[in-house]
Design a binder for these strands. Structure first.
Lengths: 197, 197
DNA sequence: TGGATGACACTACAGCTGTAGTTTCGCGAT
DNA sequence: ATCGCGAAACTACAGCTGTAGTGTCATCCA
């Protein structure tokens, strides 16, 4: 927080999430962070290094966020897990809107930027680990379920960010989703579920 | 195809999907379309109008794509529907990669651009109509399932675009997903499934 | 025929951006 | 105290971008 580098990176995330990839310039980050012009260019000599550092920063903040959540809850039923994930989704599209938009902008960037793709691949899927833990807690042991949940949440949040629904109620939607998974496991023992990656 | 305006828009989609939001400039579209400098600026006087037209173009092409698919198939079991959606997902992340990446870039843009958000809201969810039709064909009548499927596919494809998995096998994953839905319906009659929007 | 009309091609320019380079400042070691 | 040095602040500049404005040419109607 006090470190100048992190101040600049958090400002960069706000610019990226709030105004998009095109607005992410050295000078815009300087202005957002209220530091003298040139500061960002000194820490991140070119755009690539700035983007790379943003990937790390976003990953770190999301990981910290989920570790905080995991410290306070420990869901053992689908309904409980739905509340946990629902709250996380609501925050992602609400309080953490800019951070989340920045994350999606980075994902799209990874689609046509090999250097960023590599960094995303390295730093990604750390929060997925928590999904895996929680899924095991509610009795889902199919590794395919992890990808189902992760992809579903990704799509859910992206749509809410793009075209917000004022009545967004992620908990109810996720509850239905999880009930389906668990019910299916009870029914035919997961032999048809998605394969591991 | 012969219309100059559409040639420019398709070139714009290739630029947007292939090199990102920052690379989408009048001159870059001119070059991609192999037309004289200034052509794109003549048809789309400012960046907003170009972006807006791109939204329409992408929607139109995706709608046409799904109408073509719907003309040739008519799935009646979860496994059949999984093949249909799996093929669509594979194409979205493969043959139509640039178009799909452009679509996601537009979705992120909608997150911080009110004008684009409005156009996305108007043009969106036309392909969702086909999902709804197909879901009914395989015996799913819960309107919440539509959102489950749409969001899951969105996340699945985005992840594949961002960090491609060479062993990407969407059909198997979607099959597991659909089996879960249908099995859950059979088990407890959908009373817990996600609510309608 | 001829001239008006609109599509297309080209030019101009001010402002912004990435990047390199130089100067100033803060501060611990000597 | 002062010297050294890395961090921070500032300056410079070439290239790109959005936008406005002007010129050219085919086509169609009177």
């Amino acid at each position: 927080m006090s470190n100048r580098r992190e101040v600049l990176l958090d400002a960069a995330v706000r610019v990226l999430g709030g105004r998009g990839m095109r607005a992410l310039t050295h000078r815009a980050v300087d202005a957002e962070a209220a530091v003298p012009v040139g500061s960002t260019a000194n820490y991140f000599p070119n755009r690539e290094s700035l983007l790379g550092a943003i990937v790390e920063r976003i990953s770190a903040r999301e990981r910290a966020n989920f570790e905080e959540i995991a410290r306070t809850v420990s869901p053992t039923t689908p309904a409980e897990l739905a509340r946990v994930l629902g709250a996380a989704a609501r925050d992602a599209a609400g309080v953490h809107r800019e951070l989340t938009l920045a994350r999606y902008a980075i994902l799209v960037e990874a689609g046509h930027n090999a250097a960023i793709r590599r960094r995303v691949a390295e730093n990604g899927s750390r929060v997925d680990a928590w999904f895996a833990v929680w899924l095991r807690l509610i009795g889902s042991h199919d590794p395919g379920h992890l990808h189902l949940v992760a992809n579903y949440l990704t799509g859910l949040i992206l749509h809410q960010l793009a075209v917000p629904d004022p009545a967004f109620d992620p908990t109810a939607m996720i509850a239905g989703f999880l009930e389906s998974l668990v019910a299916a496991v009870g029914t035919h023992e997961s032999e048809t579920a998605g394969r591991t990656i």
